[in-house]
């Protein structure tokens, strides 16, 4: 078992023991690190950033700049108005708000439900617990596409088509991955805390929210971030369930940029809209970078 309590900030290298060897070997290693590794990382970083950069500069191009062939990276005529035009070209603000509503509600129900379920699996003793947890783990591996048609029919019987409910409600029933992730974390909460609180007469509900929840904050934030980015990026469920123009999320609303013929696409506006779509996740990433990394690595720690 990898020690999953290893905080994310420990990600920085710590291999004092490795830099032994002769002086020549050390110099060679240093050269290797300084020059070759750096060069590789710089080239890779540039390659990975290139699509983002191109997206942003295209968003700033005028129609004349767009038609230049072969293309140039920077616009000759910086057209900041493209960003404003997106809002009149498609109901971008509406889509944005819808996506935000869906994301926020999804995160809320995800955190609450998965936390309670994980608590039940990690901090309470009851018969059949481990058996049920096996079932949770098995469902981790179930291919999701099987559920598309049945859940679609289920929600259409419930008259939930063209509402946000099918996008949000399923998250209120826990997801195997988040349950697993939170349980791993909650297992490290010392039992003595809980039992002491119970002896003091605290209700289980209070223990959950006032003692355990604050302790689990790092894991909860990681789950919230993972849930938020997933909800923000979701494509298939809004495609299936949202039909009215006023209910669309960004993923589907932005398909308005496409047309039957690729020839009619407003590349500048499409890129301006795409650039605005990634603003929330990027802000979230810079604010909580270490939680991001923790979320990713927590899940992998098996």
């Amino acid at each position: 078992m990898i020690d999953i309590s290893t905080p994310a900030k420990r990600i920085s290298p710590r291999r004092a023991g490795r830099s032994g060897g002769t002086r020549a070997a050390r110099t060679a290693r240093k050269l290797w690190d300084n020059v070759i590794v750096r060069a590789f990382l710089i080239v890779a970083s540039l390659a990975f950033l290139f699509p983002l950069v191109w997206m942003i500069t295209t968003a700033l191009k005028s129609p004349a700049d767009l038609a230049i062939s072969p293309p140039e990276l920077l616009p000759r005529d910086w057209t900041w108005g493209n960003f404003a035009e997106v809002f009149s070209y498609i109901p971008f603000a509406r889509f944005f708000v819808n996506t935000l509503i869906v994301t926020v509600l999804t995160v809320l129900v995800t955190v609450v439900s998965n936390f309670l379920i994980a608590y039940g699996f990690a901090c309470l003793d009851w018969r059949g617990r481990d058996g049920l947890f096996y079932t949770v783990l098995i469902t981790l591996f179930l291919p999701f596409p099987l559920a598309i048609i049945p859940t679609f029919n289920l929600f259409s019987w419930l008259h939930w088509i063209d509402t946000f409910l099918p996008l949000i409600v399923p998250h209120a029933f826990g997801s195997a991955f988040f349950i697993f992730l939170l349980r791993q974390f909650l297992l490290q909460v010392p039992r003595e805390y809980l039992d002491a609180a119970r002896l003091d007469g605290a209700s289980e509900w209070r223990i959950v929210w006032q003692i355990v929840f604050p302790l689990a904050r790092p894991a909860v934030i990681a789950v919230a971030i993972l849930a938020a980015t997933k909800a923000w990026n979701e494509f298939l469920t809004p495609l299936l369930y949202l039909h009215s123009a006023e209910n669309q999320t960004l993923a589907i609303g932005m398909q308005l940029f496409k047309s039957e013929f690729q020839t009619d696409i407003r590349f500048d506006l499409m890129m301006a809209a795409s650039a605005m779509v990634i603003v929330p996740p990027v802000i979230l990433f810079f604010l909580c970078q270490r939680y991001f990394i923790r979320g990713i690595t927590l899940g992998a720690a098996k």
Binding site: F152, N153, F155, S156, H159, I161, D162, L240, Q255, E260
Partner: peptide, 19 residues
Amino acid sequence: PPAFAGDNTSLATSVGAGV
């Protein structure tokens, strides 16, 4: 707007859902 030629998904789902 249809997502592709002959796309009537929104009709089908709304009729199926009774709305």
